[in-house]
Design a protein around this nucleic acid. Structure first.
Lengths: 212, 212
DNA sequence: TGGTGTGAAATACTTCACAGCC
DNA sequence: GGCTGTGAAGTATTTCACACCA
């Protein structure tokens, strides 16, 4: 059966990323066949959940046998559209921005940071991680014709909305937001928030309370 | 009514962090009174959802009036148990680890990184962000008596489980995992995963597909 | 009057259980 | 025989709608 047309739960997408992680490790260990049950063990997700998640995108397994690991990896990558490179623009050349620029897994997974922006005149014109820093206000101009689809915000919270606006103006299609501030975008520009404190708070809460 | 004894949804905890962000910004702008409706506008969460989330922990509002911003902030902090300092140990003194050590918001929110670990002999003994790097294998010994409750993992994926084990051995109560590998812990040691790629994949997917 | 707190309804997501196929 | 794919059942979460109260 070909991919379905149902709405795919957000949680499913998150789990596919987890499966991918695990499957890539398995492939590295020369495990070439996996069942939903063994994958379930390895990544702590219910086996029927795994099967259901996968069938949103197609039928990748063989009944009575299981899934071919290499083939499943390709299928998931195709399903998520991560089987091709994505160009990114990063706004905010601080500590965190530089850490992302230096993060080798980024490039390995074909997310290429092709432009960096900041508002600090001290930083503009200098090179960070091999990319020259431009002024955030000139974003649309600098990105013109560069086919950059993703924006990454690593600025302080109070600048986040401003650079998000520049990104939208520059035609960016989606935003990864590390700033701890909610940003508003048109409905066709999705935002993903990466919030450290969110997670720290959840830990503090679950450690302290009886309810788990 | 006092706090309830129901199980509190995970999603509620995440949203409380968002409300806090927004409320703190409001307080900074001298907005001292807020309704669930205006908070809803500001942080893009349904107003009844906000009211329901808050009443898990108590009744903080006044009917016909709204919520006192300052008081609500305190109440949320108390509910999450983030109204007091937390000591953290960081494992992995690479780019990302150093970025976190240099992140001033960490200290502002009372998450204090009091110990840093790595396995690289080059790094051990050196100081990073004002903290001396110790050998990961000596974690239990170094942390003894230091009252460190949280562990932060910023190592490469293949080392993540090993340092997680050291953390558990050292009596850590919860783990923030930045490594893109699933880690196993006993049921009383919660793990929060911060996965960049997870979010990037979700963006790639939602940009590429019609379903949104 | 106006906005909270909250059961009840609607929706979304997860798990079960088994038919179907290799 | 064994493991996938999937409707149906079960559970969790969100939203509605309104009683209640300053």
């Amino acid at each position: 059966m070909p991919p379905k047309n149902e709405r795919i739960p957000r949680a499913t997408i998150r789990r596919l990323a987890v499966y991918l992680q695990t499957l890539e490790r398995m492939l590295g260990n020369d495990e070439n066949l996996v069942s939903s049950e063994s994958l379930s063990q390895a990544c702590a997700v219910n086996a029927s959940q795994i099967r259901k998640d996968l069938t949103y995108f197609g039928e990748f397994g063989v009944r009575g046998v299981g899934y071919d690991v290499g083939r499943l990896i390709s299928s998931i990558k195709q399903s998520l559209h991560i089987d091709r490179p994505w160009n990114c623009a990063l706004a905010g050349a601080g500590n965190l921005g530089r850490a992302l620029l230096g993060h080798r897994e980024f490039r390995q997974r074909h997310y290429n940071i092709v432009a960096v922006f900041d508002t600090d005149p001290e930083k503009i014109g200098k090179s960070v991680g091999g990319v020259e820093v431009s002024c955030s206000r000139r974003m649309a101009e600098v990105l013109a014709g560069k086919n950059v689809q993703l924006g990454i915000i690593t600025t302080p919270p109070d600048t986040a909305q401003t650079v998000a606006n520049y990104m939208i103006e520059a035609g960016i299609r989606g935003i990864l937001n590390y700033a701890s501030a909610h940003i508003f975008t048109p409905p066709d520009v999705p935002v993903e928030n990466v919030d450290f404190f969110n997670h720290l708070y959840a830990l503090s809460f679950s450690i302290s309370s009886k309810n788990r």
